[in-house]
Design a protein around this nucleic acid. Structure first.
Length: 814
RNA sequence: GCCGGGGUGGCGGAAUGGCAGACGCAGCGGACUUAAACUCCGCGGCCGAAAGGCAUGUGGGUUCGAAUCCCUCCCCCGGUACCA
C-alpha cells in the first residue's frame, strides 16, 4: 500500500505542533514590519457554520501570505458575546446567560481550531468578560466627560418583542433587525452618543481603501444637505417664537403657499385654533396609531389637516396656512417645511389634493409656468413672482436669497444631516451596564473610574417587562452617591452591543492591560488595522460606529491617525448548494464539521475559495469537492513518490518546467495579493498538472524538479496549511513552512521562448503561427502575410492595413 | 424611484479592448483491472459533410478588432426611500 494522504492524521499532527510552539503568536518585540489582519469576530451562537468559514478562512490565507512575505503578522480572534440570544435562552430554558455564553464559546473555540487558521489565541478578547467590559464602561465615561454621551428624551424606536429601544440603524423597513417585530415610536429618556459631532469628518474616506458600496451607503446614511434655516412668524397671539424650517431651496421662498409641520411637532398643540382642535387631535392620534411601515409607504395618497393658524412669510409678508401632515417627518430638519408646490413634487401632490395655490417662481422656456405642470421642473432660467429678486438668474438665486435672509436676520445658511445621534440604551440584562448613578441631590453622577467595572449582578429573572431586569435587584440598584454620599440609584440600562465591537480592534493590540484599554506603545505598534474583512451588512452600523469611536479616541489621545481600518474587503454570502441562503428549514445547510471529517480542513478551505470570487459569494458546490481532493492528492503524490531524475539543466524539458514554475509564482502572487483565491487555485492546479506531465516524460532535471516541488508546496501553504507542512517535512526541509519566505519569480525564466501568434483577417482568427518570442514587429508581419491560409484570404491583393500587437497577434485588414 | 453589484456552455466560473469558455464539476469514449473503485489519456457551445457561419440578457454605436468602452431597454441580487 502506497503512502496515501490521510487528512485526519496529518491535520491533527500539525495543529498540535503549531499550538505547542505558539507558531502564530505575534510578539510585541518583533522588529519586522507589522501587519494587522482582522476579520470580524463572531457572536457565540454555539455553532460555527459555513458562513463563518467563508468569512475567516480566506483572511487566514491572506494573513499567512503576509507572514511568508516577512511581516510580523497579528491575526487575532475573539467573541462578541453580549447580546439578546443569551438572554432569550435564559427566558426560554432558564439557563444563566453567562454560563450559556461561555459554554458556546468553549464549543466554538474547538470548532475554530479545526479550521487550522493562524489565530493568535493569546490575544483573544471576550466582550462579556469583566476584563473587557470594564473598558467599554471606561469609554462611556470618557465620552461623557467630553460631552459626547448625553441623556435626552426623544422619539425612540421601541421593539415590543425585545422589549427595548433600538438605534435607527437597527430598524429595517420599520421592523426590528433582530426579532422582525414592527417597531413602535415611544418618547423616552435615553442615552445617546453624539456621533453627529463627527458627521462631516465621517463623510471623508481619505487614506483608506474601502469598497465603493460601503462608502456610498455611509454617505447616504449621513445624508448631508446644504440649505438654509428660515424663520416664519406665527400669526397667533402669544406665540413669539418663529416657525423654523430647513430648506435646500431658499430661492423658492416666494413660492411658499402653505406650511406643513409634522403631527408630533411641539408647536402643533399651541397654535391649533378651537375650530380645528378636534380634527387636529384626531389626525395626531391616527398618526400615532400607524406603524412606521404604513407611514413610510410612498404609494399612499397624502393626508393632512389645517391647524387653522397662519404663518407670515418674512420675505413678502404673505399670510399662509399652517397644516399638519405625516409626510413631514419630525426626525428630519426642524420637523416643519415651507411648502412650494410649484417646485416640489410632494408639496405639489398635497396642494393638488387640498386645492392649495401653486405659484411658480422660476421662469422656464419650455413650460407654461401658469399651469400646475410647473412642478415638473425644479429649476428654470430666472426668478419670477419673487418681488425684488425677479430676473435673478437661476445660478445666483440661492446665494442672493440667503444673503438677503442673513442681512435681515430672517434666516441663515446651514448644513443639515440625516444622521441622528446614536441611541445606546438598552432595557436588557446581557450587556455592559452603563456606569452612571442617579442621585436625588446631584442628578446624574458618573461612577468613579476606580470603581470599574460595574459588574452585572447574578440571580436575575428575565421575563421581559419593558424595564431592564437589573431594576429587580435592589441591592445592586441602591448605592450611595459618589458626590454627596446620599442615597442614589444605579442606571439600570445596559449598552448597545455595537459599543463593544466599536473598539475591539484596539484591545487586541494590548489585550491584558489592567491600566488602560490599550497602551500608547501597543497602539503605536499595532494600530490601525491593515486589512479588515467582514460582511457588508454592517455598512451603516458597526463600520460607521467604529469610525466614530476611533475619531473620538484619537481626540482623547488614545490612538493616532484618523481611521481605524486602512483596507476593507467585504466577502459575499456563501449559499447552500441550491442557491438559497442556508437554513435548517430549507434543509440546505452544509455543516463545516461534517465536511472536515470527510475531506479535511484543507480541502474544505480550498473548496470554499475555489467556487468563485470571494466578494461575490454564491452557492457552495459539494460535488465539486472531488476536484479539490484530486488536486491535493496529486500534489501529495508528486512530492511523496519518487520521480526519475537526471542532471541536464540546459535541456528543453528543464527550461519548460522552470518556465511554468516561474509563471505560476508570478500569477499566484498577483492573485493572492488581490484576494482572488479562485484563480490562484486554478493556477496551482495547472502547475501540478504540468509537473505530472514532466515526470511521466522523465527523467527530469534534478534542480528544475526540486524548484518545482518546493515552489508548489510553498505557494499552496497559505491555502492548505496542514498538508503543505507535512510535505515540507517530507522534502526534508526545516519546520515551519509557514515561516519560510514566499518564492520570488525570475522574469527571465518565466519568459516564453516561442509564442503562438494569432493571425486575424478583418478581426477574425484565420491562422496561428509559431514564432520566436523575441521576433520584432516587422518579422511578425512578414510571417503572418507569408502564411498560406492568409494568402488564400488575400486573393493576391494587398492588405489595406496590417495591425501588429507585439507578442499577441497580427490583424490583416482587407 | 434612486444608489451599488450582476446577467458568459448542463453547472461553478475564466478572460476588463486582442484566440470566448482557463481551472474545476457533472457527462461521453478509451487505457489499466477478473470486476469495480482509484488513477491516467481523449472528447466536449450551437448549425453544417466540409468550407464556413452563428454565439457572452436585448437593440444600437465606437473600433482594424468588443463579453470588455458608450447609449437604449429587459431581468436578477443587495441597499435605500415622502430626507424638504
Amino acid at each position: 500500500m502506497a503512502d496515501r494522504y490521510e487528512h485526519h492524521a496529518v491535520e491533527s499532527k500539525w495543529r498540535d505542533r503549531w499550538e505547542a510552539d505558539d507558531l502564530y503568536h505575534a510578539s510585541d518585540d518583533d522588529p519586522r514590519p507589522k501587519w494587522y489582519a482582522l476579520t470580524m469576530f463572531p457572536y457565540p451562537s454555539g455553532d460555527l457554520h459555513t458562513g463563518h468559514w467563508y468569512a475567516m478562512a480566506p483572511p487566514d490565507v491572506a494573513a499567512r501570505y503576509r507572514r511568508m512575505r516577512g511581516y510580523n503578522v497579528m491575526f487575532p480572534m475573539g467573541f462578541d458575546s453580549f447580546g439578546l440570544p443569551a438572554e432569550n435562552a435564559a427566558i426560554k430554558r432558564g439557563v444563566d446567560p453567562a454560563e450559556w455564553t461561555n459554554a458556546n464559546i468553549e464549543r466554538m473555540r474547538g470548532q475554530l481550531r479545526r479550521m487550522g487558521a493562524g489565530f493568535d489565541w493569546a490575544r483573544e478578547v471576550v466582550t462579556s468578560s469583566p476584563d473587557y467590559y470594564k473598558w467599554t464602561q471606561w469609554w462611556f465615561l470618557q465620552l461623557y466627560k467630553r460631552g459626547l454621551a448625553y441623556r435626552a428624551e426623544a422619539a425612540a424606536n421601541w421593539c415590543p418583542g425585545c422589549q427595548t429601544v433600538l438605534a435607527n440603524e437597527q430598524v429595517v423597513d420599520g421592523r426590528c433587525e433582530r426579532s422582525d417585530d414592527v417597531v413602535e415610536r415611544r418618547f423616552l429618556t435615553q442615552w445617546f452618543f453624539r456621533i453627529t459631532a463627527y458627521a462631516e469628518e465621517l463623510l471623508k474616506f481619505e487614506g483608506i481603501e474601502w469598497p465603493e458600496r460601503i462608502r456610498t451607503m455611509q454617505t447616504n446614511w449621513i445624508g448631508r444637505s446644504e440649505g438654509a434655516l428660515l424663520g416664519f412668524t406665527v400669526d397667533v397671539p402669544g406665540i413669539d417664537e418663529k416657525l423654523r424650517v430647513f430648506t435646500t431651496r431658499p430661492d423658492t421662498v416666494y413660492g411658499a403657499t402653505f406650511m406643513v409641520v409634522a403631527p408630533e411637532h411641539p408647536l402643533v398643540d399651541r397654535i391649533t385654533t378651537p375650530e380645528q382642535r378636534a380634527a387636529v387631535d384626531e389626525y395626531v392620534r391616527a398618526t400615532n396609531r400607524q406603524t412606521e411601515i404604513e407611514r413610510l409607504s410612498t404609494e399612499r395618497e397624502k393626508t393632512g389637516v389645517p391647524t387653522g393658524a397662519y404663518a407670515i412669510n418674512p420675505f413678502n409678508g404673505a399670510r399662509i396656512p399652517i397644516w399638519i401632515a405625516d409626510y413631514v417627518l419630525v426626525t428630519y430638519g426642524t420637523g416643519a417645511v415651507m411648502a412650494v408646490p410649484a417646485h416640489d413634487t410632494r408639496d405639489f401632490e398635497f396642494a393638488t389634493r387640498f386645492g392649495l395655490p401653486i405659484v411658480p417662481v422660476f421662469d422656464h422656456p419650455e413650460i407654461d409656468v401658469t399651469k400646475p405642470l410647473a412642478a415638473a421642473f425644479e429649476h428654470g432660467t430666472r426668478m419670477i413672482n419673487s418681488g425684488q429678486f425677479d430676473g435673478t438668474p437661476d445660478e445666483e438665486a440661492f446665494s442672493a436669497v440667503v444673503s438677503f435672509a442673513e442681512q435681515h436676520r430672517i434666516g441663515e445658511r446651514t448644513v443639515n444631516y440625516r444622521l441622528r445621534d446614536w441611541l445606546i440604551s438598552r432595557q436588557r440584562y446581557w450587556g455592559a451596564p452603563i456606569p452612571m448613578i442617579h442621585c436625588e441631590r446631584d442628578g446624574i453622577v458618573p461612577v468613579d473610574e476606580a470603581d470599574l467595572p460595574v459588574l452585572l449582578p447574578e440571580g436575575v429573572t428575565f421575563e421581559p417587562t419593558g424595564q431592564s431586569p437589573l431594576t429587580q435587584i435592589p441591592e445592586w440598584v441602591n448605592v450611595t452617591c459618589p458626590e454627596c454620599g446620599g442615597p442614589a440609584r444605579r442606571e439600570t440600562d445596559t449598552m448597545d452591543t455595537f459599543m463593544c465591537s466599536s473598539w475591539y480592534q484596539m484591545r487586541y493590540a494590548d489585550p491584558h492591560n489592567p491600566e488602560r484599554p490599550v497602551s500608547r506603545e501597543a497602539a503605536r505598534k499595532w494600530l490601525p488595522v491593515d486589512q479588515y474583512t467582514g460582511g457588508g451588512e454592517h455598512a451603516v452600523m458597526h463600520l460607521l460606529y467604529t469610525r466614530f469611536f476611533w475619531k473620538a479616541a484619537r481626540d482623547m489621545g488614545v490612538v493616532e491617525g484618523d481611521e481605524p481600518m486602512l483596507r476593507l474587503f467585504n466577502q459575499g454570502v456563501i449559499l447552500g448548494p441550491d442557491g438559497n441562503r442556508m437554513s435548517k428549514s430549507r434543509g440546505n445547510v452544509v455543516a463545516p464539521d461534517e465536511q472536515v471529517d470527510r475531506w479535511g480542513a484543507d480541502a474544505f478551505r480550498c473548496q470554499l475559495m475555489f467556487v468563485g470570487p470571494w466578494d461575490q459569494g454564491g452557492p457552495y458546490n459539494p460535488t465539486g469537492m472531488a476536484g479539490i481532493v484530486r488536486w491535493l492528492n496529486r500534489l501529495w503524490s508528486l512530492i511523496v513518490e519518487e520521480a526519475p531524475l537526471a542532471d541536464e539543466p540546459g535541456s528543453a524539458a528543464a527550461r519548460e518546467l522552470r518556465r511554468i514554475t516561474h509563471k505560476t509564482i508570478r500569477r499566484a502572487t498577483e492573485d493572492i495579493e488581490a484576494l482572488r483565491f479562485n484563480t490562484m487555485i486554478s493556477r496551482l492546479m495547472e502547475h501540478s498538472t504540468a509537473m505530472q506531465r514532466a515526470r511521466e516524460q522523465g527523467p527530469v532535471d534534478r534542480l528544475a524538479w526540486q524548484e518545482a516541488t518546493r515552489t508548489a508546496v510553498l505557494l499552496t501553504a497559505p491555502l492548505a496549511p496542514h498538508i503543505t507542512e507535512e510535505l515540507w517535512e517530507r522534502l526534508g526541509l526545516p519546520y515551519s513552512i509557514h515561516l519560510h519566505p514566499w518564492p520570488e519569480f525570475d522574469p527571465e525564466l518565466a519568459r516564453d521562448e516561442e509564442m503562438e501568434l494569432v493571425v486575424q483577417v478583418n478581426g477574425r482568427v484565420r491562422d496561428k503561427i509559431l514564432l520566436s518570442s523575441d521576433a520584432g514587429e516587422e518579422e511578425a508581419k512578414a510571417a503572418a502575410l507569408a502564411s498560406p491560409r492568409i494568402q488564400e484570404w488575400l486573393e493576391g491583393k494587398d492588405p489595406k492595413r496590417v495591425i501588429v500587437v507585439p507578442g499577441k497577434l497580427v490583424n490583416v485588414v482587407l
